[in-house]
Simulated assay, not measured.
Amino acid sequence: MGRGRVELKRIENKINRQVTFSKRRNGLLKKAYELSVLCDAEVALIVFSSRGKLYEFSSAGSMTQTLERYQRSSFSPHDNSTKRETECWYEEVSKLRAKYDSLLRTQRHLLGEDLGPLSVKELQNLEKQLEGALTQARQRKTQIMIEQMEHLRKKERQLGDLNLQLRDKLQKEGENLKAIQDFWSSNSAATGNSNFLHSSQVSHIDPAPEPILQIGYHHYVAAESADVPKSMAMAAETNFIQGWVL
Rank of each mutant, 00 (worst) to 15 (best):
R167Q: 05
G4F: 08
L111S: 12
E68D: 09
E113P: 04
S59V: 02
E131L: 13
R153I: 00
S231W: 03
S119A: 06
Q242L: 00
L28A: 14
S119E: 02
L8Y: 07
Q107L: 09
L96D: 00
P209G: 06
D161H: 04
E237C: 01
T238G: 00
S36L: 13
V19E: 03
L103R: 03
E175K: 07
L134K: 10
R72L: 10
C39D: 05
K155C: 01
S119N: 11
N26M: 07
M145D: 14
G192C: 11
R24W: 04
D168Y: 05
A32I: 05
N26R: 14
I46L: 15
A98W: 01
T86V: 08
N16K: 11
L246V: 01
V202A: 14
R51E: 09
I11V: 12
K30G: 11
V19G: 10
R5L: 07
E175Q: 07
L8C: 12
A137V: 03
E147V: 02
E12V: 08
N193D: 04
Q136W: 06
K14D: 05
N176F: 07
E56G: 01
A41G: 04
E173S: 04
Y90I: 13
L118Y: 00
S58W: 04
S200H: 12
L164T: 08
K141T: 10
Y90Q: 15
V19W: 08
G52M: 09
N193F: 07
S119H: 05
T106R: 13
F240R: 00
G243M: 14
A137W: 02
S200L: 09
Q214C: 04
C88Q: 09
R17C: 06
S203R: 15
K155Q: 05
L126D: 06
I15W: 05
M145S: 15
Q171W: 01
E113M: 15
E122D: 02
K23W: 06
V228G: 07
E237D: 02
N193M: 13
S102H: 06
K23E: 05
E237T: 00
Q139H: 11
H109G: 06
R69A: 14
Q158C: 00
L54A: 10
D101R: 00
R25S: 09
Q124D: 14
K230T: 00
I215H: 09
V93I: 07
S194W: 02
A41Y: 08
G116S: 08
H151D: 01
Q242A: 01
G27N: 07
K53P: 02
T142E: 15
M145N: 12
L29I: 09
E91Q: 15
I144V: 15
H109T: 03
K14V: 07
S74P: 03
S81F: 11
Q129L: 12
N16E: 08
D161Q: 05
R3I: 01
R51M: 05
H198K: 13
D79M: 12
T86A: 15
S231M: 08
L28Y: 09
L38I: 03
V202W: 08
R157T: 07
E91S: 12
Q201I: 04
